[in-house]
Design a protein around this nucleic acid. Structure first.
Lengths: 213, 213
DNA sequence: TGCAACTAACTGACTGGTCAGTTATAAATG
DNA sequence: CATTTATAACTGACCAGTCAGTTAGTTGCA
């Protein structure tokens, strides 16, 4: 009977903004529900369009996840690479900066959700795992290996196997993230910065040249 | 036309053996497919009975996972606690032994599959995550903290925050397992034992009293 | 500048299939 | 023959992906 007073359009064409919005919505739903339990309908509604609309921009659910890695996480790794390149003159300082960044990023549930999804899905979708590895992990790993090699070169660290050193460097951040986001462990003993400093303290002593500090 | 020559029974009562067999089958299916994609029908057939039969022993899919933690993983953590209790006289030696055990266990895909499932499902089933935490993580954590505290007490380590030390201790094993099982990283640089020794080398220097070793 | 013709963006009902869990029934067991 | 253990057929709900049709916005033309 009563018509809409002002001709309020049912929807608007927003072709440029859509992909980003859909990815944001997908990340939220995946974070809250996990990949399988997330419904395309909910992702669509959250992004402000209908289910069919999502398929105009993405092939399907799996493609959504792949795009998510590309758009939300890969840039972080690339950023780390930039810092490593710029910091060749002060490798230990750069490592400390990267450590702070890593702690900060991993603390964000939306960021940590992605590796978490990959961990759960790698058996079923090896392609996703491979994508994550090449686009994110290998990039970050290379950046760290560069810095560690530079530190060894300059005599600031004893000659360690870079791979082992990289593992020792990042593992605690992964672990802390698991503890917080997965197990909801009782409040981290210390603020994130303190964690970084504690970790660095142990690590540098372990890797330092004899009696260096 | 032809009847079974020997009256071969269609099935046998095997009430005692069933639960274990079902859990084995469930673990295999969960490992290969993940929790959601694993089908109850497949788990049942793999265990050698029909789908309905599984429901005589377990409430449902989620209960299967919970029982899996109890039966397959919790004993490992309890074993670690025993070792820690027995090794109070030689804390660093016990830690080294536990490190070897941890590396060995995490290398087994069937074992690592469980934390992996928990990681993926903790958002949807907080109860499962809590269960894993109390039955597995807290137990192992307490064991390690005991040993580290003992080592500090005896002056074999400098006075470190036990929590930070525990994190530094286990994190690399978790990381290595991710690298291997999730990302299929190119062959670990070294054999597992070498990994343990490398890790220990860095860690002990980092935690040692000044100029101890 | 007003309107017709057109296109890209979008909707929502529908389909085909899947699968967790239930139940009626039957076989083994003691 | 009563009870336990098991099966197989069934149900009901759910959901990814499709598609015929609709609408917002655009362009060409008078």
């Amino acid at each position: 009977m009563t018509q809409p007073p002002e001709s309020a359009p049912k929807w608007r064409r927003r072709a440029e903004a859509r992909p980003e919005e859909i990815l944001d919505a997908a990340l939220s739903e995946f974070t809250e529900r996990g990949f399988d339990a997330a419904r395309m309908e909910d992702i669509a509604r959250r992004a402000g369009l209908s289910k069919g609309g999502v398929y105009l921009y993405f092939e399907g659910k799996e493609a959504l996840l792949k795009a998510l890695i590309e758009a939300k996480i890969a840039p972080i790794a690339h950023n780390a690479r930039m810092i490593a390149q710029a910091g060749a003159q002060d490798p230990l300082g750069s490592l400390r900066m990267l450590a702070r960044m890593a702690a900060h990023r991993f603390a964000d549930p939306k960021v940590f959700a992605v590796p978490r999804l990959v961990i759960g899905l790698s058996a079923r979708f090896p392609e996703i795992a491979a994508h994550y590895r090449t686009q994110v992990v290998e990039v970050a790993k290379a950046a760290l290996e560069t810095l560690i090699a530079a530190a060894v070169e300059r005599g600031e660290l004893r000659p360690v196997e870079p791979r082992a050193a990289v593992r020792a460097f990042i593992a605690p951040f992964l672990f802390e993230a698991m503890w917080t986001h997965v197990l909801h462990g009782e409040g981290a003993l210390a603020a994130p910065e303190t964690l970084v400093e504690q970790h660095f303290d142990v690590l540098l002593r372990g890797l330092a040249k004899e009696r260096s500090q």
